[in-house]
Nucleic acid binder design. Structure first.
Lengths: 233, 233
DNA sequence: GTCTATAACTGGATAGAC
DNA sequence: GTCTATCCAGTTATAGAC
């Protein structure tokens, strides 16, 4: 790293890493923002609240990230890469291990499994992140475009693999099935507490083992039935 | 209905009907609020914006509905009754017409169909309303509780009927399947435009006929497979 | 890098005229 | 019922001290 910054815009170091002191404040801010945005949405959170939660001053947030919207984008982008990598790897591993004998359910497991794994990590941040993605996913205003920017490649990968297993499947069916699947998956990962009240405590939305035990079969069966019936023209 | 209101709190007529002049401003305000809240969420909309959209003054909104939150609740409650009524009726009709020969897919159609029907009405308001419900449905902070207050009875009805058709089914499986189903359904009804970009125009999220042609089969197959496999203890 | 202070503005809500 | 005018709490964002 060159110590002389010469003269390329020496104004504000937006997006710059902090020097390297003990507790990384930049990450702390992102964690706090992630937790709050995921529960109340972009407009439901103030920069002040994020600052309070992170134990820093509001000015510092603007110093690191610029405007509030840029902070939000940074939160969204932070884990997207890791997530995509994990999913692509899981799908590649499944293909390698089972090529010639791949099943729809197997592919679905490779596609959804990593999300459940990450959500069950000690890192509570992943739960918040998935809540955030779910929230963005059904934000009509700008959600579609955002999802598109970050997550399309993995989905195309899924569709491609399904097409390999079921060559007769109509592509449009696969896209619609993906949409059904992602709706179920995102709601489950949001852990909204709805099922707890609905079932009067019989099911708990935090019980991701229960989700895992059912969602692969549920989605796979749905996909199979849709692609196996000739759709009416 | 008694015409004499005697003396019960003659302060502000919150929640009162307007006298009976030409264009019903109260409804216009609700329509505007519905459209805006459904796209930007509660915090993403200002009372001023609602007023502008409805062509009225902000003061009038407070006159009719009180605080902003009460306006939101009024929007949410307005169509809930009609919707629940339509769904209960569709399910009852299905039961009557097919008792003895009910299928999972038939029940699911009775459960989901009315939403698609209403969304395809000329009344654009229903589309906004479903977007709003979807948004509330995965709002971790207070969404679960709100859904619970308004929509639990229809869901219990669905679960009961499914239990009749498949007496061996575990109740917990049915609740989880309902959650998967509602995630798919709400996302589809939100028409976020995501699938349009994802599929590069091959599918359009506004194409509810395409949704209808697939979602019944998808959900029914999912439910059947989940309840037919013995879950591991 | 981090904090203090504050500028500049937007929001919800109401009082009171008509 | 409806609008005008306004209050004031709370917000983003920045300038500048340390």
């Amino acid at each position: 790293m060159d110590s002389r910054v010469s003269e390329d815009k020496a104004v504000t170091p937006r997006g710059r890493r902090p020097k390297g002191h003990g507790p990384d404040l930049r990450e702390a801010i992102l964690d706090a923002a992630e937790a709050l945005f995921s529960r109340h949405g972009f407009y439901g959170v103030t920069v002040r609240q994020v600052a309070a939660e992170a134990g820093v001053d509001t000015a510092l947030i603007h110093y690191y990230f610029g405007a509030k919207r840029e902070l939000f984008d940074s939160v969204f982008a932070r884990r997207a890469g890791i997530l995509n990598e994990a999913r692509l790897q899981a799908m590649a591993a499944y293909e390698q291990a089972h090529h010639g004998a791949m099943t729809v359910e197997g592919v679905i497991e490779a596609f959804i499994g990593p999300l459940l794994d990450l959500s069950m990590t000690n890192d509570e941040g992943w739960k918040n992140y998935f809540r955030l993605v779910a929230l963005v996913n059904n934000t009509p205003a700008w959600g579609g475009e955002t999802m598109h920017r970050f997550f399309d490649p993995v989905v195309h990968r899924l569709v491609d693999v399904l097409k390999v297993i079921r060559p007769d499947a109509e592509i449009r069916d696969l896209y619609w099935c993906y949409q059904f699947l992602t709706g179920s998956m995102m709601l489950a990962l949001s852990e909204t507490g709805r099922i707890d009240q609905l079932s009067d405590g019989l099911c708990r939305s935090t019980d991701l083992d229960a989700v895992r035990a059912r969602i692969y079969a549920y989605c796979a069966a749905g996909i199979e039935r849709v692609i196996e019936r000739k759709p009416q023209p």
